[in-house]
Amino acid sequence: MLALPPVLLNVLGFLLGFAGVMVLRVLTVMFGKRPASKRSKPAKTMIVLGSGGHTAEMLMLMDSMGRERYSPRTYVVAATDAMSGGKAVARERTWQKTESPTGFSLVQIPRSREVGQSYLTSVGTTLYSLAFAFRVVLRERPELVLVNGPGTCIPICAAAFTYRVLGLAQTQVVYVESIARTRRFSLSAKLLYHLRMADLLFVQWEQLAKTYPRAVYAGRLY
């Protein structure tokens, strides 16, 4: 055995202990997925709109949800997506039957990589987008994060997971795989599934739920 000075041994012991606690926390959050206990107050909800077909599916799901339960709502859209924000506002108008709906907000998030951007500069923009996601989730501390891809949703999910590990938030992550995925998972679904970052992961085809047993088939949006 090396003879280490007692101070160093103490520091080492503390670091080891801390690392052990963190690993335990990560594993607890990864494997301790269970429904929340009884709730009566509305749940603050963050909805990531992934543009195009992703946005359409997410808003269809919101059509069917008890929106008084999932309130207030924060919609997260990519800064380059000119359409989704307007679609969310239009839908809020319809739901609330008023020209000036309330109780929701829109947040723009920078894209980690634009089509055609070089990989070198995309390292910087990815870090920026990740930092932005961590800031937004910490500020809002939603009780539910609702996502359905594409990649833009991953930084938000990573932030929610990290804050849960650190005990700063109790965010549940619900992912809905696109109806276009009939046989194979998207990259986002694979990440969230294997890293156990989603508390609930829906697929829209029964055969996919057979391939991925922890995925849930509960019907199709369309």
Partner: peptide
Amino acid sequence: GMAAAIDKQLGF
């Protein structure tokens, strides 16, 4: 079906 499962997950 999805909405009901989310309600359950959140404890509603």
